[in-house]
Design a protein around this nucleic acid. Structure first.
Length: 355
DNA sequence: AATTTAACCAACCGCCGAGCG
DNA sequence: GCGCTCGGCGGTTGGTTAAAT
């Protein structure tokens, strides 16, 4: 199947297109329609190969192309489709009106892929990188949606391998998830609670290992709130902890783990139907999952589609999600940062319910 | 202000499959 | 069945711009 490259011929121009060339190509296609790319450049008076013309038209000049930044919904769609289709950019583009495969591919490679990698998620398999992450965080995130109670158990079980005085950051996160579930879907919440009751493990025994630190932490958080009258970021809160607070300050890895603690908003997504996709996708975008020791604001283990526990200050926050049409990446980052604000929900008392 | 580095993205390259004679 | 062309696709490059030093 031999084939001569269409651009090998001398005299054919390469490189960036000029306005005049764009005008010639657009005018010709408006008159004759696209197609027959081999003869098109000659007929249109262009010193380009047909392939170059086709790419210019399909990726840039086509009138139905949507320019500008990708919206939040588009980003979610790309991730979702990529998890199913892989690098089938044209197939993904077919689901995103106005976006070209080239544009999606570029956006994936320059934005989404990097973000997933930063968050410890393999951009190829969409699975957490076990070699990079803390196992308990992975377990927590993976199970959180399916079965919060089981997730709690898993995390607590993982916690038993840590020094007893270590406050497992996932514990509060899962607790917040359960709190959110209780508010959003009481029926499912009680079902999960029943699952926990039916299990052979006694959570009270496990949770007691961490209860002391949990109480001290909440006490500190309350003091901070009372003193400042404002919310305190998670990192600041940890920074304010006394050095003898638990065991973590003696071990760098544990210290980092705790400093990366991000609370609240970890509830299940608004879609509590057992399909984990939107929670998963939101986690990918917002940076969910086992980010350890990374203060990057893009790695927030909080699903954007679950705002129940957070109070975003961004004006773009509309109806429980970012206002997609106006959301820039900077604003998204800002929004993510706002999710770091500390708000231990009152319903965290539900931990006692498990006791 | 100048230089270096990083990020972005349009465009190119090469491979592939469909279709045709 | 073979050879060829065409259009499509995914990977990669390199020029431009922005940010950092």
């Amino acid at each position: 199947m031999g084939r001569t490259p269409c651009c090998d011929k001398n005299g054919l121009k390469k490189g960036p297109w000029t306005t005049e060339e764009d005008h010639k190509l657009t005018s010709y296609i408006q008159l004759h329609g696209p197609g027959n790319w081999r003869t098109l450049p000659k007929n249109a008076g262009l010193q380009r190969c047909g392939k170059s013309c086709r790419l210019r038209w399909t990726n840039y000049l086509r009138p139905d192309i949507k320019r500008g930044r990708f919206t939040f919904e588009e980003e979610e769609t790309i991730i979702q489709l990529h998890s199913i289709l892989g690098n089938k950019w044209s197939a993904i583009a077919a689901r995103l009106p106005g976006r070209t495969d080239n544009e999606i591919k570029n956006y994936w490679n320059t934005h989404i892929r990097k973000r997933l990698l930063r968050n410890g998620i393999d951009p190829v398999t969409h699975a957490p990188r076990l070699d990079l992450l803390d196992l308990s965080a992975i377990l927590g995130n993976a199970l959180c949606h399916v079965n919060p109670a089981a997730s709690l158990l898993a995390l607590l079980a993982a916690g038993t391998q840590s020094p007893p005085s270590l406050l497992n950051p996932e514990l509060l996160r899962i607790a917040a998830a359960l709190a959110s579930l209780k508010q959003e879907n009481p029926e499912l919440y009680h079902q999960q609670q029943q699952n926990l009751t039916d299990s052979q493990t006694t959570p009270s025994q496990l949770i007691q290992l961490q209860q002391a630190d949990l109480e001290r932490f909440l006490e500190l958080n309350n003091n901070n709130d009372n003193n400042s009258g404002s919310q305190v970021s998670g990192q600041d809160n940890f920074a304010s902890l006394p050095n003898d607070f638990g065991f973590w300050n003696t071990i760098p890895e544990l210290s980092e783990n705790c400093r990366s603690f991000q609370s609240c908003g970890a509830g299940l997504s608004g879609n509590n139907n057992g399909n984990g996709s939107d929670w998963y996708q939101s986690s990918l975008i917002s940076g969910g999952g086992g980010n350890i020791g990374n203060a990057d604001s893009s790695v927030i283990s909080t699903p954007l589609s679950s705002p129940a526990q957070v109070t975003p200050t961004s004006s773009n926050f509309v109806n429980g999600s970012l206002s997609a049409s106006t959301t820039t990446e900077d604003e998204r980052e800002s929004y993510c940062s706002s999710l770091l604000k500390f708000e231990i929900p009152e319903s965290l008392e539900l931990l006692d319910d498990f006791m």
